[in-house]
């Protein structure tokens, strides 16, 4: 990796005052951005500049900045979480860009993810899908069985774990040309369907979660596979296929 240097960039950022306001793309010049800084640090730098100019800073979602919380988003230069694979925006670094680059930054675009302000979108639709069935009902009154006392085949455990890696960031919805949430729901359905603890409620789970997904206004999956490519956690299309199987099984019961 070459040593860090400073670059000057042009930013085109979606600005929208609130959920009801009509937004637009605004252009900003930002100089002396270190290529060692993260993308979000670059936005911090922009916001400092805006505050110094007595302008409204750009609102964007972020939390852990360690690539695990699923809070950061951003559609950067036409790609969810920007031009690198297997990472969230907070793990994206400015060394991916060159001096003089113009960078487009837009919020996730989906009817089910309305813009709250600037680059912040409301992803509570995902929470409602989870609440519809993305859990295992366990009696927690003190006699809970240790999870490891139930044997699970290694292959199933690995697949469930890979599905459970989903952080619910919404990149799959953002990148899908149909705004479909099936990779997210597929991962959540799979992580339980593969495990003995989850099988008990499998029928209702898949029916309820899919119904909620449809009610939220997400689009329909057409198997383009873009979600799988852009997912920061590498969730595979196999999970959508598993959800399709689970749904068929549940529908025939």
């Amino acid at each position: 990796m070459s040593a860090a240097k400073n670059i000057n960039i042009t930013l085109k950022i979606w600005r929208q005052k609130n959920a009801k306001a009509k937004g637009s793309m605004e252009t900003y010049k930002l100089d002396n951005v270190s290529t060692a800084s993260s993308f979000l640090e670059m936005l911090d730098q922009l916001n400092e500049q805006l505050i110094n100019e007595k302008k409204e800073p750009v609102a964007f979602d972020h939390d852990c900045r360690e690539g695990i919380c699923g809070m950061c988003s951003l559609y950067i230069n036409g790609r969810a979480h920007g031009p690198d694979s297997g990472i969230t925006t907070c793990q994206l670094h400015m060394r991916m860009f060159n001096d003089g680059d113009t960078i487009y930054i837009e919020p996730w675009r989906s009817k089910a993810f309305p813009v709250v302000k600037d680059l912040v979108v409301d992803r509570s639709a995902f929470d409602r899908i989870q609440q519809a069935g993305g859990f295992v009902s366990v009696n927690t009154s003190g006699n809970t069985i240790d999870a490891n006392s139930i044997p699970v085949p290694k292959d199933d455990a690995d697949k469930a774990f890979m599905a459970a890696a989903c952080i619910g960031c919404g990149a799959c919805v953002a990148t899908c040309k149909n705004g479909s949430a099936m990779l997210f729901v597929g991962a959540k359905v799979s992580q339980y369907a593969l495990l003995p603890q989850g099988k008990v409620e499998a029928t209702q789970r898949v029916l309820n979660m899919v119904r909620q997904m449809d009610e939220e206004g997400f689009g329909n999956c057409t198997n383009t596979g873009a979600c799988e490519i852009e997912c920061p956690k590498g969730i595979s299309l196999e999970n959508i296929a598993r959800m399709n199987r689970e749904y068929l099984k549940a529908s025939l019961k």
């Binding site: 487009y104 675009r109 040309k177 997400f218 329909n220 057409t222 383009t224």
Partner: peptide
């Protein structure tokens, strides 16, 4: 029907898109 619903699922489009993550045919 699917196409109409899918268009509705994204009422505001992106200013910049990059088609590299899916095939021409699938889109």
């Amino acid at each position: 029907m699917l196409t109409i619903q899918n268009k509705k699922a994204r009422p505001v489009g992106y200013a910049k898109t990059d088609g590299s993550s899916s095939s021409f045919a699938s889109r």
